[in-house]
Design a protein around this nucleic acid. Structure first.
Length: 608
DNA sequence: CTTAGGG
DNA sequence: CCCTAAG
């Protein structure tokens, strides 16, 4: 058995460098901020991956995703009007990829994660595919399941693609869906890693083994420059580590060239994540604190601490994963029913158990293997035809989970025990907000309702999956869809999101002040003076949401600067000289006033 | 939250 | 336009 694993953050020059810890003394310096930004992109990876890995330790970072939204909501007022439906520059993050498998050819033209475990010579054996997996780690993903479907054409491969698991019950987990709360402002960051097809179509669900698997953006082939298909964030620090782990050479990925990632927005996404995580951390740490004075210093420390925690947890997790992969790969092969799990956190597992094994055995086996990778309390549920088989003593045969029987409607659920155990009351408001109703709701049973048969058209399943995805995420899909990269063997979280929420945290678009705006600004400052920007805002821009008083202050600053330089040096929309003169006059006057008032107050006690 | 100021 | 310190 070949065991391969790689946590691959790499691809095409979009790198998230290693995250140096930022000394608190360096705070505020731009160069440092930029590093922090990059760090935060990785933080996201860490958080998401960590969450997907069910990292209990990481749970502290998970709510940050939620809090980021609510913290940013404060800014929403000035953001909402301008964000529109901008597409998030980040398209995908290859969080990692793990392969543990026997190297069978895997392909799914249906994009339904159907993998071949065996070659066609074993076609008489149990033949089913667990269609999807949604992993629910610490409340990031609620409800998850493997869907088991009788698969793939008994050795004909999927839709005629040879090598598809005739001999194996294949547990596959390429679909990971994360529901978002409907609330428009909650879980903004969450939506960053959500997925919405650019065209409003549901995301294509791609087999990680897609020798024929369609990239998520395959429909987008003709606009490769859109930068919206895929992006894989590379963490330099991971490289050595991961490359040492023998890299992932998936048999099915060779020769696939259609997966070139296109990505243009790494900078903005870094900033975006940086902002989100900073705010999330700050919000979380400081939300309850009433003492303003202590608030900031406290937060300053805590933010970095949190980040470090996340980072450490991530690395730790990765090591654990690697170790456990090796362990799981050495599990003895039993007989008859083979399960194969393939996912981004659960790459490919082969679980072979005798037909006369019990449901409980199956559950335990799946759970053991899964939890050997996804540490933390996971419960495995087995559903047959939508019904939870609770009788663990039932044998697989009795439950008709064996070859030749109805395997198409067998589902596995992975439920995070931590989530079950955690009392809602313990959750922070942010967490609750983050989870929201939708997030708490079970994800769709991603099983394939249409059992594959040898004669079935290969596109059906994809269709059905897509439909289910749409049902679950009406309007704009906000699912996290880990999509395997055929060429990199990396699953990707692909937020191709038009959601407004997804754009929150992005740098606001630049909106040059119009001449009337400048005029009204000058008017207001003439009246109110500099230093009363909130009043200026209320006086002159009260109904202009996208102009904050900071904006006005900044604009005044630039106006003063513009007025004080030669006309040849000025850029942008020319401001009438008369207006600039007024700016200078007002500036001079009010700065003098401020000085005078400062002196007056300073002299106040002595001049009596 | 607001202001001030650097980036 | 962003970010942060400081009040």
């Amino acid at each position: 058995m070949v065991v391969r694993k790689r946590l691959d953050y790499g691809s095409r020059g979009h790198q998230v460098p290693a995250m140096p810890r930022v000394p608190s003394s360096a705070r505020g310096k731009r160069s440092t901020r930029r590093k922090k930004d990059e760090m935060c992109a990785f933080d996201l990876l860490a958080t998401v991956a960590g969450s997907l890995l069910g990292d209990q330790e990481n749970s502290s970072s998970v709510p940050n995703i939620g809090t980021s939204a609510s913290s940013y909501a404060r800014k929403k007022k000035s953001v909402k009007a301008e964000q529109g439906d901008d597409v998030l520059p980040l398209n995908s993050i290859a969080v990692g990829n793990c392969i543990v498998g026997s190297g069978g050819a895997c392909a799914s033209p249906r994009q339904t994660n159907i993998c071949s475990a065996e070659n066609s010579s074993t076609r008489n054996e149990t033949d089913s595919v667990l269609e999807s997996l949604t992993v629910e780690p610490n409340m990031l993903v609620k409800d998850s399941l493997f869907s088991c479907t009788k698969s793939c054409n008994r050795g004909h491969g999927l839709g005629g693609i040879p090598g598809c698991c005739p001999g194996a019950l294949s547990l596959d987990a390429n679909q990971l869906q994360v529901k978002q709360p409907k609330d428009g402002d909650a879980a903004a960051l969450y939506s960053l890693v959500s997925s919405v097809d650019l065209d409003g179509r549901p995301p294509a669900l791609v087999s990680s083994d897609s020798s024929s698997g369609m990239p998520l953006c395959s429909h987008d082939k003709d606009r490769n420059t859109s930068g919206l298909c895929r992006a894989e964030v590379q963490h330099a620090a991971d490289k050595d580590d991961d490359e040492n782990s023998s890299g992932c050479t998936h048999p099915c990925t060779t020769g696939n060239k259609s997966y070139a990632p296109h990505y243009t927005g790494d900078s903005s996404i870094r900033k975006l994540f940086a902002s989100k995580f900073r705010k999330a951390a700050r919000n979380r740490m400081c939300g309850e604190m009433s003492n303003k004075g202590s608030k900031q210093s406290f937060c300053g420390n805590k933010i970095s601490t949190t980040r470090q925690k996340v980072q450490r947890a991530m690395f730790k997790r990765k090591k654990i994963v690697r170790r456990n992969f090796t362990a799981s790969s050495t599990k003895g092969v039993l007989t008859d029913v083979k399960l194969r799990i393939k996912s981004f956190t659960i790459p490919e597992l082969f679980i072979e158990i005798p037909e006369n094994a019990t449901i409980g055995t199956l559950k335990r086996t799946v759970m053991d293997v899964v939890t050997s990778i996804i540490e933390g309390g996971l419960r495995v549920g087995v559903f047959l035809e939508g019904k939870n088989i609770q009788d663990d003593s039932k044998t697989l045969r009795q439950a008709r989970i064996c070859h030749g029987e109805n395997l198409d409607n067998v589902d596995f659920t992975l439920e995070c025990e931590a989530a079950h155990n955690s009392s809602p009351g313990v959750r922070t408001p942010e967490e609750t907000d983050f989870l929201g109703a939708d997030a708490m709701k079970p994800l769709a049973m991603m099983k394939c309702e249409e059992p594959f048969s040898e004669t079935k058209a290969s596109g059906n399943n994809q269709h059905s999956i897509v439909e289910m995805t749409m049902q679950e995420t009406p309007g704009s899909s906000r699912a996290i869809v880990p999509v395997a990269s055929p060429n990199a063997d990396a699953l990707a979280i692909v937020p191709v999101c038009k959601s407004k929420r997804a754009t929150m945290g992005q740098r606001r678009i630049r909106r040059p002040f119009s001449l009337p705006e400048v005029e009204s600004l000058v008017d207001a400052v003439e009246q109110l003076g500099t230093g009363r920007w909130r009043d200026v805002k209320m006086l002159a821009f009260d109904n202009t949401d996208h102009r904050t008083y900071v904006d006005l202050k900044d604009k005044w600053k630039t106006l003063v600067h513009t007025a004080s330089i030669s006309p040849q040096q000025r850029r942008g929309e020319p401001v009438p000289q008369g207006l600039l003169d007024r700016v200078l006059v007002a500036q001079a006057y009010w700065s003098q006033q401020q000085q005078l008032s400062g002196k007056a107050s300073g002299q106040g006690s002595s001049s009596c």
